[in-house]
Simulated scan of single mutants.
Amino acid sequence: MAVVLPFESAPEASIESLVRLVQPDMERVNATILSRTGSDVTKIPEVANHLISSGGKRLRPMLVLATAQMCGYQGDAQTKIAAAVEFLHTATLLHDDVVDESELRRGKATARMLWGNEMSVLVGDFLLGQSMRMMVEVGSLRCMEILSTAAAVIAEGEVMQLAAAKNTETTEDAYLAVIRSKTAELFAAAAEFGPVLAGRPKAEEAACRSYGTNLGIAFQLVDDALDYGGRAAELGKNVGDDFREGKITLPVVLAFRRGTDAERAFWRKALEKGEADDAALETAVGLMHKHRAIEDTCERAKHYGAIATDALGLFPASPVKRALADAVAFAISRAY
């Protein structure tokens, strides 16, 4: 079975300072989320709240609040925007679990396991509608453009991932294109709202977007490494789920590319033909360690994390800037 990533020590990193700095705004966001999941159709709040209340860190809405604070925004539009971002994220999770036939999400049975695929998809659609409704209420065409573009790009990423599934010839560039769309795009959008709301220069919008994009890439790279080197309790899903589903992630790309002909035959058999039982997973992890695929995936994450941190250099020193840098360190430290 999978083993814990073999690093010597864990760097101290936390998002506690970020949580503390945005707490008053986050309380309003949470109240908005609860009120907007309400519906006369009783199953909708039941299904939506199953995932919304399941303990996610809500990092994306916190990025909206933190960048707005860093850029000196004084209004209250960030509350609805942050809630809209969380609704879009939750909708994509509900849809993803159906596509991936996932059984666990954040350590709990997925909505599809409790209520079925149809209900999960439809409640996801409801949350998407509520997300767009809140953006209309904000009244900013630019903000609407950012979130609606993100929704389309995320869907493109999901389709790209589906097309690449079980294809062991997938390149690192193709993999990165998937996660830029599927994961990093919403991080980028969330971080970009702050300077847009504050009317800051385009350079600051671009810097925040770069921060979000590269944080999102680093975050996903660590997730992909943890699928082979983490614990189920940490992942909130079964270790090896990506492997069993035939997903081509960076650890697979690296191990396949660096392997022998016999090893590549193993990957084809396991991923393309679906022969991915527990014994095959153990072999896969062994090959990844042999070729440093997990470790190098984490090194890639550090690279993108450094780009994210550097993007903050445009802004003056402040507690919230430091907290955003700490969020990068936290995202990467999950692998240690």
Rank of each mutant, 00 (worst) to 15 (best):
F187Y: 14
G199Y: 04
F193D: 01
P195W: 08
I179L: 07
G199P: 05
V239C: 07
N214Q: 05
A177S: 12
V178P: 00
A177N: 13
L235Y: 10
A233T: 15
R231A: 15
V196H: 00
G236Q: 11
A206S: 10
A225F: 00
P201S: 06
G240M: 10
D224K: 07
E204K: 13
Y228W: 08
F219C: 11
D227W: 05
D227Y: 06
Y211P: 02
A174S: 09
E234M: 12
V196W: 00
N214L: 06
K182G: 06
L197N: 01
G236S: 08
T183G: 02
G216P: 02
A225V: 06
E204H: 11
A174C: 09
A198Y: 08
G236L: 14
Q220I: 08
A174N: 12
L176M: 15
V222H: 05
G236N: 04
A206H: 12
D224I: 03
A188I: 03
G212I: 13
G230T: 09
V239T: 12
L226F: 08
G240T: 06
A233S: 15
V222F: 04
T183F: 02
A184F: 02
D227V: 05
G212E: 13
L186D: 05
L186F: 09
G240D: 06
D223I: 07
R180L: 05
T213K: 13
F193K: 04
P195G: 12
K182R: 10
V196P: 00
S181P: 00
D223L: 07
I217G: 02
I217K: 08
E205W: 15
E234Y: 10
V196I: 13
V178C: 07
E205P: 00
D227N: 15
A198M: 10
A207W: 06
E185G: 00
G194L: 06
T213Y: 01
G199D: 10
L235F: 09
A218S: 07
Q220Y: 10
K182E: 08
F187E: 05
A206L: 14
A206N: 13
C208N: 10
F219S: 08
A189D: 12
G216D: 07
A177V: 01
E192S: 15
G230M: 12
A191V: 09
I217W: 01
C208T: 14
V239S: 04
G240L: 09
K182H: 11
P195A: 12
G230H: 10
P195E: 11
C208W: 13
T183L: 04
Y228R: 04
R231M: 13
E192M: 15
N238V: 05
A198K: 04
F187T: 10
A198H: 06
A233R: 11
E204M: 14
G199Q: 12
A174Q: 15
A207L: 09
L176D: 02
A184V: 04
